[in-house]
Every structure is written in structure tokens, then in C-alpha cells.
């Protein structure tokens, strides 16, 4: 009987150890990799518009057309498409990260973490939204 008790304690500590070791978020799933690749491929096109100020980074973790007049008329349609596709990928990214970690309800928090980091990492000259939603140039 004593042995069983001992064994149970060992199992308990093994479990507690493994539970607390999961400090990193899982981000290496096929779904996340696919979204990342798609966003990476799009970035070359989008970065031109970030730099010109036509497209900016929003405070909610998306991108948005900030000033369409900075885009030649012929390219406006394609910018709108780029922005829509990017936002679709970003939504998928946030959702997949939350899901990959077993907590779909974390999606909003993942999004707001990303929103802050996209803005922090934006190059100078790019436009980002501040906490009040106003556009500011970095």
C-alpha cells in the first residue's frame, strides 16, 4: 500500500512538471506555416504601400487602406485585394495559433499581442494606428 502511495506521488510530480514546462506557444503547425508563407509572399507587394503611406497597420492587428489617393488609379483595385487577402491571412494566423495551443478562446488576445508587435516593428515612415485609432507616422 505504501508503494502505491509513493507511485502516485511520483506520477503526480511527473505530471506537474510536464504541465509547467509548456511555456512556449506552439506555432509550428502546417496551417500556421501555410499562412505564414502566404503572408511572406505578399509582403513585397504590400511593403511598397506601407512605405508610401497608402496602407497602414491598424491597432486591431489588421492592415487598412489609409489613403487611396496615394495609389495610382489603375492599382487601387489590386491594393484593395491585397489588403483583404492580408487580413484574411492574419485572421487565420491568430485563429490557428489559438487553436494549436488548445485554446481557441485566446484568439482575441493573440490578435492584440500581434497588433502591438506589428506596430512596434513597423519601419520608420510607415503609418500605424495609435491607441485612439488615429493614424500616426512612425
Amino acid at each position: 500500500m505504501k508503494h502505491i502511495t509513493k507511485l502516485l506521488w511520483i506520477m503526480l510530480f511527473a505530471f506537474a512538471g510536464s504541465a509547467s514546462a509548456a511555456a512556449d506557444l506552439e506555432v509550428n503547425t502546417p496551417a500556421i506555416a501555410a499562412v505564414k508563407a502566404s503572408m511572406q509572399a505578399r509582403h513585397n507587394s504590400l511593403s511598397t504601400y506601407y512605405a508610401s503611406g497608402a496602407v497602414g497597420l491598424t491597432r486591431d492587428g489588421n492592415v487598412a487602406v489609409r489613403d487611396a489617393s496615394l495609389v495610382p488609379l489603375a492599382a487601387r483595385q489590386s491594393v484593395n485585394g491585397l489588403v483583404a487577402d492580408e487580413n484574411r491571412d492574419r485572421a487565420a494566423l491568430y485563429r490557428e495559433i489559438a487553436r494549436a495551443n488548445g485554446h481557441p478562446e485566446w484568439e482575441a488576445e493573440v490578435r492584440s499581442t500581434f497588433a502591438q508587435r506589428w506596430i512596434d516593428k513597423a519601419a520608420s515612415g510607415w503609418w500605424v494606428q495609435n491607441a485612439g485609432g488615429a493614424w500616426v507616422k512612425k
Binding site: F15, L25, H103, W106, E109, T113, K121
Partner: peptide, 25 residues
């Protein structure tokens, strides 16, 4: 343990975000 785990791991999320943003950009 399970209860602790339901809290959003903000630091880990930030680290993950940085890694992904570096890759995408």
C-alpha cells in the same frame, strides 16, 4: 495546474509574435 493553464501566456505570445513577424517581414 489546469486552472493556471487557462490564463493567456502573454510573454510567450509576444515571443511567438516576434518570431513570426520577423519571418513574414
Amino acid at each position: 495546474c489546469v486552472t493556471i493553464n487557462i490564463y493567456f501566456p502573454a510573454a510567450a505570445a509576444e515571443k511567438a509574435a516576434d518570431k513570426i513577424i520577423d519571418e513574414v517581414w
